[in-house]
């Protein structure tokens, strides 16, 4: 199958992924909007007003970029891991394996599908945030590129999780025991400057720190880490995630008998 054929196959997978999360919008789009709105109310308005400034901004302004990023991360990851594992579980992955679709086409299709949901939820949450605070974008290019790179990294991570997963437990273990702690310790709710030096250094190995702070730089113009450092780390995670996912899919020992 030529490049045009692969392009059609790619569009087919992306279209199918978007159709999937729109079909179950009550499960995919509404819950994250409600959850993040509650964060805005509790941490931003109620508790935030008593916290005072954080990193030179009032707490609501400080926490909003992190919460938007949290929604993007969770939904980009969740979409790919549940969709690809569901495809394995129902065995309709065989529809793609018997067809002349290249592995890279399958990977890109799922990843773009996951990014689309992450960005859709991110958009909804951003609109909700406008009810609680003003958002003045400091640098559009940094803001948009950080959002895209973050959605890409976690779509790839979700894909890798789904390849390894053999049961529904396996697709909830990583989000519960790895992703959630990383998110909460990734500088969404606080500045790492508040941490003791040791824990501040430990935080530097958390990829979410760079994503949240890169995005916060785009919105507020302030960050706990250097913006160049954030880009380097994100591109590194993209490279590692993409090559690992493609390698695992190509070997496909967990997908084929």
């Amino acid at each position: 199958m030529n490049m045009l054929g692969q392009w059609i196959a790619f569009k087919t997978i992306v279209y199918r992924e978007i159709r999937r999360f729109l079909r179950i919008w009550v499960q995919t789009l509404v819950p994250p909007a409600i959850t993040i709105a509650l964060y805005f109310v509790i941490f931003g308005s109620l508790i935030g007003s008593r916290i005072g400034d954080m990193g030179g901004f009032d707490y609501m302004q400080f926490v909003v970029p992190g919460l938007i990023m949290m929604a993007i991360i969770q939904n980009a990851y969740g979409n790919v891991v549940s969709s690809f594992f569901g495809t394995k579980f129902q065995r309709n992955i065989e529809e793609m394996l018997v067809a002349p679709v290249k592995e890279i086409t399958i990977l890109l299709g799922y990843v773009v599908g996951g990014m689309t949901r992450g960005l859709a939820v991110g958009g909804i949450v951003t609109v909700l945030a406008l009810f609680f605070t003003d958002l003045n974008v400091h640098n559009w290019w940094v803001t948009i590129s950080m959002v895209f790179l973050t959605a890409l990294v976690f779509s790839l991570a979700g894909f890798i999780n789904a390849i390894f997963a053999e049961s529904f437990d396996d697709i909830s273990i990583i989000p519960t025991f790895v992703l959630t702690p990383m998110i909460y310790l990734g500088g969404i709710f606080y500045s790492v400057d508040l941490l003791p030096e040791f824990w501040a250094n430990v935080s530097l190995v958390n990829p979410i720190l760079y994503m949240v702070n890169g995005f916060r730089f785009g919105i507020l113009g302030a960050s706990d880490v250097g913006i160049l450092q954030a880009y380097v780390m994100l591109l590194l995670f993209v490279a590692i995630g993409f090559s690992s996912a493609l390698y695992l899919l190509t070997r496909a020992e967990r997908l084929r008998s």
Binding site: M1, N2, L4, G5, Q6, I8, A9, K11, T12, I13, Y15, R16, R19, R20, R23, T87, Q90, R91, N92, E94, E95, M96, V98, A99, P100, V101
Partner: peptide, 29 residues
């Protein structure tokens, strides 16, 4: 190939299943 066990997406519509398979083979929509 028509496999022994049902292996299509149980939540998709009939027409979507067939059109999607065509897409995997590079058929324009």
């Amino acid at each position: 190939v028509v496999p022994q066990e049902f292996n299509f997406n149980q939540f998709e519509k009939v027409l979507d299943i067939v059109i999607t398979q065509g897409g995997y083979y590079g058929l324009p929509r």
